[in-house]
């Protein structure tokens, strides 16, 4: 009988031990998956989640802090991603933090990176929706650039009209020169062109600086320029823009010089009118301006075609149409 009891004891120990192993394994796994620990929920809205899956890791400044717990379409274009974040990390994530989707490792698991931003804000609370990358500041920069470009185009067209008139000798040359109103007009236009060129330059410089920053802070680079190819393309476009903008500034300066000459040399009107070279000079300058504006436009177009900015430009167009309508209505009134 004691033999049977001994067997029972051994069997009991074995069964308990193995069951304990299994249960503790399950517990530890669950622990890792944050099933048993305390969690907070954060949300983020994306237009594209690039194959993110449930259970993918969420990192805050590179530390694993949780997992993706839900992915759902909010409406036709917006995807709401719910993240389960360890409660212990909550105080470190501020309300202005930015969520981006990136890839991780050789195999290319998708992950969500939450990045802190400068500025002092409150920590997040469970249920908060944090910003995502596609809504950060580039908007403003691009708006300015676009407006500048359009201004330049407009002004160039004006200039062209004037020079054409000069060349065609509409009215008399003397009239052109003596008509101070016209001359003033011309000067005004050129000044404006100059100003907008400077503005364009400035914007480009800002954009450039921004891209430099992008390149420096790698985490952000990951999110915007996911593949280096489109990053390179962007860089090229920007440098092109810069180049044509410089050209424009130069040309405008030349124009300005010419106009100044005209104004200052009051007595030399005849000389001017007879000097075909000058007119031709103005003409070729104008052609140059046109050319560079066209190139500027082309680059702008390329920028528009880049998928990263496509959505933004579309939005801009709609905005413009609306403004135009408003404008015409106001004009009518």
């Amino acid at each position: 009988m004691s033999k049977a009891a001994n067997q029972k004891l051994k069997l009991g120990i074995f069964v308990m031990l193995s069951t304990l192993l299994l249960v503790s394994a399950l517990y530890f796994i669950g622990n890792r998956q944050n099933l048993f620990g305390k969690n907070i929920k954060l949300h983020a809205l994306f237009y594209n989640v690039n194959g993110l899956q449930l259970g993918n890791n969420v990192r805050f400044s590179g530390i694993d802090v949780g997992t993706v717990s839900k992915i759902a379409m909010n409406n036709d274009t917006v995807i709401r991603v719910e993240m389960s974040i360890r409660e212990s990390i909550q105080t470190h994530i501020k309300k202005n933090a930015v969520a981006t989707i990136g890839s991780d490792g050789l195999v290319g698991n998708m992950i969500i990176n939450i990045l802190p931003r400068e500025g002092i804000t409150m920590p997040v609370v469970s249920g908060d929706t944090i910003e995502t990358y596609s809504r950060i500041g580039t908007d403003d920069l691009l708006t300015t650039l676009n407006v500048t470009n359009e201004n330049a185009a407009l002004l160039t067209a004006d200039l062209l009209k004037i020079t054409t008139e000069i060349v065609e000798g509409k009215g008399t040359l003397g009239m052109l020169i003596t008509d101070s109103l016209l001359a003033d007009d011309l000067r005004q236009t050129i000044v404006q062109l100059k100003r907008s060129s400077v503005a364009a330059n400035q914007t480009l410089a800002e954009l450039n600086a921004y891209f430099k920053e992008v390149r420096q802070s790698e985490s952000v680079a990951n999110l915007l320029l996911t593949d280096s190819v489109s990053g390179e393309k962007m860089k090229r476009i920007v440098s092109n823009l810069e180049f044509s903008s410089d050209e424009m500034v130069e040309i405008t300066a030349g124009m300005s010089q010419v106009i100044d000459d005209i104004k200052e040399s009051d007595g030399a009107l005849n000389y001017l009118t007879n000097d075909k070279d000058l007119v031709r000079n103005i003409d070729s300058t104008m052609i140059n301006i046109k050319e560079s504006t066209r190139r500027f436009n082309e680059n702008m177009e390329a920028l528009k075609q880049n998928f990263l900015f496509r959505g933004y430009f579309r939005k801009l167009e709609r905005q413009q149409k609306r403004d135009e309508k408003k404008q015409t209505r106001e004009d009518r009134n």
Binding site: L22, A25, F28, I29, G30, R32, Q33
Partner: peptide, 15 residues
């Protein structure tokens, strides 16, 4: 080692 093990394993491996 075992921290890593439990990090890698999920219920869908064990159950």
């Amino acid at each position: 080692y075992f921290n890593k093990v439990f990090e890698a394993l999920s219920f869908s491996d064990v159950i």
